[in-house]
Simulated scan of single mutants.
Amino acid sequence: MRRTGTTRRGALTATGAIAMGAVLAGCGSDDESAGRKGSARADARTAADRSSAETSLRVRARGVSTALLARYEHVVQAYPATAAGLSPLRDAVRAHITALGPGGALGFVRTPPATGDAAAAVRELAAAERRTAASHTEALLQAPPELARLLASVAAAASAHAYLLTELAKETKA
Rank of each mutant, 00 (worst) to 15 (best):
R3D: 03
R3S: 04
T4L: 09
T6Q: 07
R8L: 14
R8W: 15
A11H: 09
L12I: 00
A14E: 05
T15M: 11
G16C: 03
G16I: 03
G21E: 02
G21I: 10
G21R: 06
A22L: 08
A22H: 04
G26L: 15
G26P: 11
C27W: 11
C27S: 14
S29G: 10
S29I: 15
D30V: 15
D31S: 12
E32G: 07
K37T: 13
S39N: 14
A40E: 14
A40H: 09
A40T: 14
R41L: 11
R41N: 12
D43N: 09
A44F: 07
A44D: 06
A47P: 11
A48E: 11
D49P: 00
D49S: 06
D49L: 13
D49M: 10
E54Q: 11
E54D: 11
T55A: 10
T55E: 09
S56T: 06
S56K: 03
R58T: 00
R58A: 03
V59P: 04
V59Y: 08
R60P: 02
R60Y: 04
G63T: 14
G63H: 14
S65M: 06
A67F: 10
A67Y: 14
L68S: 01
L68N: 03
L69Q: 00
L69E: 01
A70Y: 08
Y72W: 15
E73N: 11
H74A: 15
V75N: 10
V75S: 01
V76H: 02
P80W: 01
T82C: 00
A83K: 09
A84E: 04
A84T: 12
G85T: 07
G85K: 14
L86M: 00
P88S: 13
R90F: 14
D91Q: 15
A92R: 05
A92N: 06
R94C: 00
A95T: 08
H96N: 10
H96W: 03
H96F: 07
I97G: 01
T98R: 13
T98G: 04
A99F: 10
L100H: 12
G101S: 02
P102S: 15
P102F: 13
G103N: 12
L106F: 05
L106A: 02
L106G: 00
G107N: 12
F108Q: 09
F108K: 08
F108W: 08
V109K: 05
P113H: 02
P113T: 12
P113I: 09
T115G: 01
T115K: 07
T115S: 04
A118T: 01
A118K: 08
A118D: 00
A120F: 11
A120H: 14
R123T: 06
R123G: 03
E124G: 00
A126E: 04
R130Y: 10
R130L: 01
R131Q: 07
A133I: 09
S135P: 15
S135T: 15
H136Y: 13
H136D: 07
T137Y: 08
E138I: 07
L140D: 04
L141P: 05
A143P: 06
P145N: 02
L147H: 08
L147Q: 13
L147G: 04
L147F: 14
R149N: 07
A152R: 09
A157D: 08
A158E: 11
S159I: 05
A160F: 10
H161A: 12
A162F: 08
L165D: 00
L165F: 01
T166F: 09
E167Y: 02
L168T: 05
A169W: 00
A169F: 00
E171G: 08
T172R: 11
K173G: 05
